[in-house]
């Protein structure tokens, strides 16, 4: 009888903290997945704006066909990667792939906007200006959503890797979440240049 009680006590002492740690891991995982969903929404918005932008710009920048093609290509590639990775929040390989695709899109977009400086007619176009504002805003949103995702992923990783929760994480396959970094970070953080001081 006594051994049964002892056994029960030992089990309770092990199981209760185990359940608590498990729940904590699930909460942190949900948090970073939710943060990733926000990035996905903003990236989609970004990709949806680009065909409009190219449409508007085409008439003015006929000589920059190469750049425009590069923008379209980078956009299509990024959209494809986004669709592939949208369910794979935190998977390190997917995050890296997404980061690369978005980074190169940011790079060519930056080039396009730099070139647009030489076309005053284009810059006077109301449609172009509003698209520029929408893109600037979307870039910012992506950046802030990425910041939130990386913070959430780091908090999750801290739980996955520290004692004692790492034991539970190992038992139930809680893998480390990958950070999302955009390769062309300069172009991401300093998107289309619209502010002059």
């Amino acid at each position: 009888m006594e051994t049964v009680i002892t056994l029960l006590i030992v089990l309770a002492v092990l199981i209760v903290p185990g359940v608590l740690l498990y729940n904590r891991l699930v909460r942190k995982r949900n948090a970073f997945k939710n943060a990733f969903a926000q990035i996905d929404v903003q990236l989609k918005r970004r990709h949806d704006l680009i065909p409009n932008l190219v449409e508007t710009v085409q008439g003015y920048m006929a000589h920059e066909r190469e750049t425009l093609t590069a923008v379209i290509e980078a956009r299509n590639n990024a959209e494809q990667v986004r669709q592939q990775t949208s369910g794979a929040a935190g998977d390190p390989a997917s995050m890296e792939q997404l980061g690369k695709a978005e980074g190169s899109l940011g790079g060519v977009l930056g080039r396009l906007f730099a070139l647009s400086e030489a076309y005053p007619d284009l810059k006077a176009n109301e449609n172009f200006r509003s698209l520029q504002e929408e893109l600037t805003s979307t870039e910012n949103r992506v950046a802030y959503a990425r910041q939130a995702y990386n913070d959430a992923a780091m908090r999750y990783n801290n739980v996955v890797e520290t004692v004692p929760s790492n034991i539970i994480a190992g038992m139930f396959n809680f893998a480390r979440a990958g950070m999302l970094e955009f390769e062309d970070r300069e172009a991401m953080q300093e998107p289309p240049k619209v502010q002059f001081s």
Binding site: Q42, S130, R141, Y144
Partner: peptide, 21 residues
């Protein structure tokens, strides 16, 4: 809204809503 300044303000508020969660 289509007014550029107001549109920008609205966008900035949305950006900060994301940043502040």
């Amino acid at each position: 809204t289509t007014n550029p300044a107001k549109r920008q303000l609205y966008n900035v508020v949305e950006e900060m809503a994301i940043a502040a969660n």
